[in-house]
């Protein structure tokens, strides 16, 4: 298990040191601050905060789980799989004493870690931003639940992206297809609503069901099992491709 731990640390560090990751973290930190400044300005000029300021962490979570986080996931996955293969650096860890299955698992673990960090960072900054702009916060427990719940569909999307990346040996091609699939799935859910029930991409806003009395335990459980099933299938299918890669 030491090799799994060692490579997970390595993968997490490599993701952190990529300039893109830092850019995304900066974006995550800056958007709530900008939003807070706007709210403060609105408050001082009109005396009201308005609907926008009523639940900043949730508004930002909706925005980020719809576009920003999926984009971060697609970029990261295409870099750590297809991009490394193209640059011939994937072999650097594969010739160390670590099995392919563990190398794959550690890449996925590092991705999951950074998705969790982004969500946690967004929650902290948006929570602080709301507190500073309104002088207080409401629904803190609900927003924690929502942020924790948002991790599940993000990870499912990430695992499908990992599977897609196994078919490409260049990062730009992989990323274009991932974005294409995501956009097509979102559009299809609108055009053919019955399909949305079965599409992972329809659950990016799953977290809203966890707020207040959003949904029954049974519905939450069913959705969780659906996302888990897709995740397991994508993980295993991706692993089979990864294990058979000829570098």
């Amino acid at each position: 298990m030491h090799s799994l731990y060692a490579n997970s640390l390595n993968e997490a560090e490599k993701i952190w040191k990529r300039p893109r990751t830092k850019g995304f973290l900066l974006l995550i930190l800056s958007i709530p601050v900008v939003a807070a400044l706007l709210l403060a300005l609105l408050k001082s000029s009109t005396g009201t905060v308005g609907a926008l300021g009523s639940d900043l962490p949730m508004i930002l979570l909706n925005l980020f789980t719809f576009a920003v986080l999926p984009l971060f996931i697609f970029m990261t996955v295409s870099d750590i799989f297809s991009g490394e293969e193209a640059a011939r650096i994937l072999k650097l860890s594969l010739v160390r004493p670590i099995t392919r299955a563990k190398a794959y698992a550690s890449k996925v673990a590092a991705l999951a870690f950074w998705v969790a960090v982004q969500l946690a960072g967004l929650w902290i900054v948006s929570f602080l931003a709301e507190w500073l702009s309104r002088g207080g916060v409401s629904g803190g427990a609900d927003s924690i639940k929502a942020y924790a719940a948002a991790f599940v569909p993000m990870l499912a999307i990430g695992l499908i992206a990992v599977f897609v990346a196994q078919w490409f040996s260049n990062s730009s091609g992989a990323m274009a297809v991932m974005i294409g699939i995501y956009a097509a799935a979102k559009l299809l859910s609108i055009l053919v609503p019955p399909i949305s029930v079965w599409s992972v991409y329809s659950y990016t806003n799953w977290h809203v069901l966890w707020v207040g009395n959003g949904a029954s335990i049974g519905k939450l459980f069913n959705t969780f099992v659906l996302l888990l099933s897709y995740s397991i299938m994508a993980y295993i299918a991706g692993l089979i491709r990864f294990e058979n890669k000829q570098l």
Binding site: H2, N7, L9, E13, K14, K17, R88, I89, L92, R96
Partner: peptide
Amino acid sequence: ETADFYEYLTAWDHLRMAARF
């Protein structure tokens, strides 16, 4: 094959990561 490395990592970073194994 070829000596390829992560362009954004230093020699020290590469060796420290390899040493973790």
